[in-house]
């Protein structure tokens, strides 16, 4: 079963959402769903005590990803 919600975003947030939808070819619903899954996936790892890192393309820099 799917439920409907109203999301209140600022202009800047809505612009960012629409730009991502355009770039990825996704509806707003699909984009929010994917974002939620990614957030949940990362958060589950952090909750288990894992660390999540982001590495630059030439692998010279690595930064730990922090999640609120």
């Amino acid at each position: 079963m799917k439920r409907t919600m109203t999301l209140n975003l600022t202009d800047a947030e809505m612009d960012a959402l629409e730009a991502l939808c355009e770039e990825k070819g996704l509806s707003k619903t699909a984009l929010v769903r994917q974002a939620l899954r990614l957030y949940q996936s990362v958060d589950a790892r952090l909750a288990r005590g894992d660390k999540v890192f982001v590495e630059n393309a030439d692998k010279t820099e690595k930064a730990e990803l922090m999640v609120l």
């Binding site: 769903r33 939620l36 899954r37 990614l38 949940q40 996936s41 990362v42």
Partner: peptide, 10 residues
């Protein structure tokens, strides 16, 4: 088959 539908692999 097990698929992932979200997360860093996707």
């Amino acid at each position: 088959m097990l698929v992932r539908k979200g997360g860093e692999k996707c």
